[in-house]
């Protein structure tokens, strides 16, 4: 027999849950570029020819330490994001951007002490037939056809005599197009920013990309010399990532 008390508990639970569900507010998470601490503009010494990122799996950390999954607010009907994935295009002053400079998160009111997200396209979507893909995965330029996936991050930078060209994505893949494809290297960096407060912007510090190599390049092939630096900076090797920082 279900007691009255148990029933009340269930109802209270449902009510609380439903209530909490419906009461989210939209919090904007802005992204921008910096170079040696200075904001990157179109007249900066650093030339940004292209810089795009896919991000997904956003979560906020409550004071208790619990991580709460965050959906993206799709009410604006942007062609660059849906509930679960957003495409950022951070190259300054473009006439035709290919993505957003900020994402809108649906956040339950409360206090938080951290933010995390993944760079890339989730495994379940990464190897779909890209010709049938929905926004923001329908962009041919960001599809990585030779390895049947997506360019999770795309960097094309120039500074003085040096260039940096990187395509980040899953590699070492086997399988059939439209079928199951498995990759030895997932290459989806998880970025965690402790002490994040709602409303704080995120900055990408790009100076570190310019290493001793005059032309650093990682296009997803085993012989590409630039991959080590790229993977290291994004936290794909043992050390934590060093590109993403919280702004004021």
């Amino acid at each position: 027999m279900v007691t009255m008390k148990q029933m009340m508990q269930v109802i209270a639970c449902l009510w609380l849950f439903g209530c909490a569900e419906s009461k989210t507010e939209t919090v904007i998470l802005p992204f921008s570029l910096s170079f040696e601490g200075q904001e990157v503009t179109c007249s900066s010494a650093l030339q940004v020819n292209a810089l795009t990122l896919y991000i997904h799996d956003l979560a906020l950390q409550e004071l208790s330490g619990q991580w709460q999954k965050v959906e993206l607010d799709n009410s604006l009907n942007s062609p660059w994001q849906n509930e679960s994935i957003a495409l950022l295009d951070l190259a300054p002053c473009q006439t035709k951007p290919m993505g957003l400079t900020s994402v809108a998160m649906k956040v339950k009111p409360g206090q938080y002490q951290g933010l995390r997200f993944k760079i890339g396209v989730p495994q379940a979507l990464n190897h779909q037939d890209p010709q049938l893909a929905k926004a923001p995965l329908d962009i041919s330029q960001l599809q990585w056809h030779w390895t049947v996936g997506y360019k999770f991050a795309y960097f094309d930078l120039a500074w003085r005599e040096q260039t940096v060209k990187h395509h980040l994505g899953s590699s070492g893949c086997v399988g059939n197009v439209g079928d199951d494809i498995q990759c030895r290297y997932q290459n989806r960096p998880e970025i965690t920013l402790p002490s994040y407060q709602l409303g704080q912007p995120i900055k990408l510090e790009l100076r570190q990309f310019f290493t001793e190599l005059p032309h650093a390049r990682c296009f997803g092939k085993p012989q590409d010399k630039g991959c080590d630096t790229l993977f290291n900076l994004l936290g794909l090797q043992d050390a934590p990532q060093r590109i993403f920082r919280l702004g004021a």
């Binding site: 037939d129 890209p130 010709q131 041919s140 330029q141 599809q143 056809h145 030779w146 390895t147 049947v148 395509h167 893949c173 086997v174 399988g175 059939n176 197009v177 439209g178 494809i181 296009f219």
Partner: peptide, 19 residues
């Protein structure tokens, strides 16, 4: 490239490849 098993899909490479 053993991943290229679909002739329609293969055409996307010459059309859009940047490397």
């Amino acid at each position: 490239n053993p991943l290229q098993t679909d002739l329609s899909f293969q055409a996307l490479i010459p059309l859009f490849s940047d490397d």
